[in-house]
Design a protein around this nucleic acid. Structure first.
Lengths: 347, 347
DNA sequence: GGCGCTCGTTGGATCGATCAAGGGGGCAGC
DNA sequence: GCTGCCCCCTTGATCGATCCAACGAGCGCC
């Protein structure tokens, strides 16, 4: 019974209203109220109306715990929250999380965040899974040989990865990703359209498949346009000063008129070098970054940058998750989305 | 019973292990197993050991839904996730959320994210509260006259606000905040120590209490040091070009040698103006921002910025929440934490 | 009018944990 | 040897929803 008490003149519920309260008040049984909530078309219209009105009067909401217990679902999606690394510009998590929360909410899910210590990469997942605290996971950090995807697959836990299983052909899980090569193709073609012919690449070290993917977009576009690439590429760590150094070396040795970078962080390094050499970004030398981070948006000159469609990624992930959870056959094993180019003054 | 089946040679649990399974296997009752988990000191050491071993053998984790139903708690903290506005540098959410997740986890809580449409600001809160989906809330957007805090107080819902109830003296809720004035005092004193005497302020419009607070730190420090402030302050919108314009006007009219800004976004505007006028940040003109955003960190020159102790804020919030939830008297109604200054080349 | 069928409704059982009492064994005291 | 007491553990009830099987009213058909 939803008891209540008077306090300070306002009637406040002490125990929340239950299904039984509504049933009694509306003069029907519990099951009928449950049906009114979950399968409205089973009720006669007038009964439905009456029950709904009672629900509104009493301000009833189904108790999550009870529902979860009975249905063995939680309507929660687990996401391990990995913060942006300090000193880099890649703030994709912020935008992605928001998109995921919104997309989930429309599908009736909420997002549960958890952390995980580095010693035990699957610890957090294991806990939530065994205690049936979440229905599914979204895995974001699909770096080379990451253990989470493999482990979750073994456990037959439903999950969708944001990111391709680059190395592992045997991986049978579902993923959504953004076509990085298409992004750098966009960037490179954009620069070619502006008349540039000597376009340099600054990317990540070779052991990053994401970096190599992005690099390939630059490479193929240059080749397709019959433009030179020798001496115009550099692979460094993803920190600002590495980008700056690489830009300095490339400027000295190969005289490029434009740079395509694997990240906004590296692009910032390039801009730094330009600034030191009194070169104007966009006028003297063009620069394009990757991720459309806040840095790209608020940098005084305005950094042109490849923008990942994170909203679409989130929608796609939730759509796929729903298929997985409803035991429908999943249409496609992987979905690749096209990024766009946010053009600003630097190019 | 935790049934299991053979598939692919590996034994996989179909139904998770329950308390009863453990009890049967260990030769004790359900309650004893429950006590072994929750009140270990009630058991005889040898029994405890035996039960614990059985729990480990079977890989048992308590079912969250069942526990939640019985105890009327969820071990979840609700947080409305508001993404960073595009075009601004204030990415505090990212760092704060991570800190909150970590602090919560140590206290046995997880963070539940939800969105809310602007039409119904309390909609998300209401749903989660009535369905007893979360134990408490963390409210971050305590702007002037925000309805959430008031509403939650009325509902007697446990929550802690990140941010002071500026306008509302009647607000009786608990809060944790960062002392913005102390931050700008740090920044201003830092510039004075470097020999600057004409230090300008660029802040937000007057209707922002946070902005006025930060402004007061600059003002008092200037006065305390007997330095002039007339003609050296400007209040604009929190976008880059407004900051740039304000800097231009101030430079022309009052010839400051340093700027203290209410945000990194505005500081970026100042740097833009300096760049246009060929003035070197840090050498010709000093600039200090606020929030220590990624922009400040990766900007080529390195922007000195006030850094909010978000990790400490999160810890303090969780500590306070636990007091609230355990019905202990809360020690203090509000906690004010001191920011630090991240000094870089721009000053 | 009776039969069978459909649709809506009903009471009981169930999910898996914790709460609140109740029971049994061992040890000390007389 | 019996009683009393305490400690440790067990048993039945409960949280609030949904699933299940069965029941009842209304209707059409013969």
């Amino acid at each position: 019974m939803g008891r209540s008490e008077h306090r300070g003149g306002i009637q406040l519920p002490v125990t929340p209203t239950t299904l039984a309260d509504v049933a009694e008040r509306a003069g029907v049984s519990r099951q009928t109220v449950s049906n009114a909530v979950n399968k409205p078309d089973l009720l006669r219209p007038d009964t439905l109306e009456r029950v709904r009105q009672t629900i509104a009067e009493l301000g009833y909401s189904p108790n999550r715990a009870a529902r979860n217990l009975r249905t063995r679902t939680s309507s929660l999606i687990g996401l391990r929250f990995t913060p942006t690394q300090e000193g880099t510009a890649n703030a994709a998590m912020d935008r992605f999380v928001h998109s995921l929360v919104e997309a989930s909410e429309e599908a009736g899910y909420a997002v549960l965040l958890f952390a995980a210590d580095d010693e035990d990469p699957v610890g957090g997942y294991d806990n939530l899974l065994r205690s049936t605290a979440v229905d599914a996971f979204v895995v974001t950090d699909t770096y080379l040989g990451n253990p989470q995807a493999t482990w979750l697959t073994q456990q037959r836990a439903p999950f969708v990865a944001f990111g391709r299983p680059w190395d592992d052909d045997a991986a049978r899980h579902v993923w959504v990703d953004v076509d990085g090569a298409a992004g750098t193709r966009l960037a490179t073609q954009h620069l070619i359209d502006r008349g540039h012919t000597r376009i340099a690449w600054i990317g990540w070290r070779k052991d990053s498949p994401i970096g190599e993917d992005r690099r390939s977009g630059w490479l193929t576009t240059m080749h397709d346009n019959g433009l030179p690439t020798t001496g115009l590429a550099s692979r460094v760590e993803d920190v600002v000063h590495s980008g700056a150094e690489a830009a300095a070396v490339l400027l000295d040795e190969s005289a490029p008129t434009a740079f395509v970078c694997a990240s906004d962080t590296l692009a910032m390094g390039v801009l730094h070098t330009l600034w030191i050499r009194q070169l104007a970004p966009g006028r003297d030398i063009a620069v394009v970054g990757f991720d459309d981070s806040q840095v790209a948006q608020v940098y005084p000159v305005g950094l042109t940058s490849v923008r990942q469609p994170l909203e679409d990624v989130a929608v796609e992930i939730v759509r796929t998750l729903r298929q997985l959870l409803s035991h429908q056959p999943v249409e496609t094993r992987g979905v690749l989305l096209e990024p766009t180019l946010a053009i600003r003054e630097s190019s």
